[in-house]
């Protein structure tokens, strides 16, 4: 009588380390998600000044930002026209002092509108100076 030898071997995937592998994958993606680099626009700010002469302010280009309007030296403009208008006004002015643009905002101006306008002024070559309520100014060289 012949006995048949069983040749089939039981092969298992080693599952002991599966927990460790899963945990490491979770941690890996957690770290990747939390260190996603941010993007933005930089502005170098020197220390703010308490006061500035009115005469000096009058010589510079002034942009008034209101919730629903933008005025350049008192003239209303559309958001899409700001860059071109500022560029035209600053044409031929090469000294940094001449390219200062004073930005005055009312309290209700939203940040997205402010950043859009100031970005356009910077792109047009303007050097932003914020005029705050308490007669304080912040110079923003490009």
């Amino acid at each position: 009588m012949k006995f048949r030898r069983s040749t089939k071997l039981l092969v298992d995937v080693p599952a002991v380390a599966s927990g460790d592998i899963a945990f490491n994958l979770i941690v890996f993606f957690l770290v990747c998600a939390s260190t996603q680099p941010d993007t933005g626009r930089s502005q170098i700010l020197p220390k703010s000044e308490q006061t500035q002469e009115q005469k000096e302010q009058d010589e510079h280009l002034t942009v008034d930002l209101k919730r629903n309007a933008i005025l350049i030296n008192g003239d209303p403009v559309k958001v899409s026209e700001v860059k071109a208008r500022v560029k035209a006004k600053l044409a031929g002015k090469s000294r940094p002092d001449d390219r200062v643009v004073i930005v005055k905002s009312t309290d209700d101006v939203p940040y997205h509108a402010w950043i859009e306008v100031t970005s356009q002024i910077e792109d047009a070559g303007g050097i932003i100076t914020l005029q705050l309520e308490e007669e304080r100014t912040v110079d923003v060289p490009q």
Binding site: G40, R41, S42, Q43, I44, L45, P46, S48, V138
Partner: peptide, 10 residues
């Protein structure tokens, strides 16, 4: 600005 920081808008 007062603290002498270099501002980056995110």
């Amino acid at each position: 600005s007062q603290a002498g920081g270099e501002l980056v808008h995110i």
